[in-house]
């Protein structure tokens, strides 16, 4: 299941997608993120699943644009959104790198 956490407001799209089928609950992203964006917990959208999965914390869901700002210095020169260059930069984000199963992706 693809869980899209975040929001879209007048200024753009700010979503972190977590593929819960890939996530094995290792919690490496929780340690890797300098802004405590991730937490481990029940799978919100599959109540019958027993193993914990990574989620974006309720605290940060409405502020991702700001929380991730220090990691995303590339946005100054690149436009954001899914251009080839931003996609390359997204690959280098600490959270994306930390997840060996490649369960984490960003929309901007």
């Amino acid at each position: 299941m693809l869980a899209n956490y975040g929001y879209k407001d007048g200024s753009g799209d700010y979503f972190i997608a977590i593929d819960t089928d890939k996530c094995n609950g290792c919690a490496k992203c929780v340690d890797a993120c300098p802004q405590s964006v991730f937490e481990m917990g029940d799978d919100d959208s599959d109540p019958l699943r027993e193993e914990p999965v990574a989620r974006v914390s309720g605290e940060q869901r409405k502020k991702l644009k700001y929380a991730c700002a220090p990691c995303k210095r590339y946005l100054t020169t690149l436009s954001g959104g899914k251009t080839e260059e931003t996609m390359k930069e997204i690959e280098k984000l600490p959270c994306v790198v930390s997840c060996e199963l490649r369960a984490i992706n960003h929309s901007w």
Binding site: K63, Y66, A67, K72, T76
Partner: peptide, 10 residues
Amino acid sequence: DRIISMVRRV
């Protein structure tokens, strides 16, 4: 708070 977080990027 929002402004400071934004400026933190630079």
